[in-house]
């Protein structure tokens, strides 16, 4: 088992016990963010930025909030979310991009968080299942999943929801085939696909009525 910052030590802020450590960490995180986001990296001059293999502190923007986190370069976004930040709604099943259980949004687009490194996210916005509902209540897709029994064991559900909600963002009036295409990367071993399609079509109708 490789060493990594524990959730508890992170929550207690023990990695940031001195002001000096904080500012050094911020500098590294800033450089990493600049290097991976494509912005000019003036302070580094002509040299490529090298980080790790030890853990480095970066900042991720998750569900609208800046979340400082310590990751090794090999840490995937899915692992950073679950293990370092406690956002365990994102599920890891195959860990190879083949099942889409780990789907989150990167700047609004669904991606497999198991096949992306946390260190390469930079300034881009991550939305997880924890960020889908609002203060006003569940997202219409979540409500429709409950009403249509679109899950049994529920393990694929957070990823499914992220793909279906993303579809409605870019296509407010999809047909069944559009939904099928949107969830074509998802594996549901309980076989709830027809219910997922029905739920998503209803959620689309509900959203259109509201707007």
């Amino acid at each position: 088992m490789r060493a990594r910052i524990s959730r508890r030590s992170f929550l207690h802020g023990s990695a940031l016990t001195t002001a000096a450590a904080t500012s050094a960490a911020a500098a590294i995180a800033g450089a990493a963010a600049a290097a991976v986001s494509g912005r000019p990296v003036t302070e580094q001059g002509r040299e490529a930025v090298r980080l790790g293999p030890e853990a480095v502190r970066i900042s991720l923007t998750i569900n609208g909030s800046a979340r400082p986190v310590s990751v090794e370069p090999r840490t995937t976004l899915a692992e950073a979310l679950r293990d370092a930040l406690g956002l365990t709604g994102t599920k890891i099943a195959c860990d190879r991009g083949a099942c889409s259980a780990c789907t989150v949004w990167l700047d609004g687009q669904p991606i497999c968080s198991c096949m992306v490194l946390a260190i390469e996210i930079g300034a881009r916005h991550v939305t997880t299942i924890e960020g889908l509902a609002s203060a006003a209540g569940l997202h219409p897709v979540q409500t429709a999943f409950i009403e249509h029994d679109a899950l049994q064991c529920g393990f694929c559900t957070p990823g499914m929801l992220m793909s279906c909600a993303a579809l409605l963002e870019r296509m407010p009036a999809p047909d069944a085939q559009d939904v099928e295409r949107a969830i074509s990367g998802h594996l549901c071993r309980c076989g709830c696909y027809p219910h997922v399609v029905a739920a998503t079509l209803e959620a689309a109708a509900v959203r259109r009525k509201r707007s």
Partner: peptide, 22 residues
């Protein structure tokens, strides 16, 4: 689950930086 070996991360800003680091 994740059995990737540790590695360092090099952020290249130009083709020549990248080519030199690989």
């Amino acid at each position: 689950m994740n059995v990737m070996q540790p590695f360092a991360w090099v952020g290249a800003a130009t083709i020549s930086q990248a080519a030199a680091a690989a």
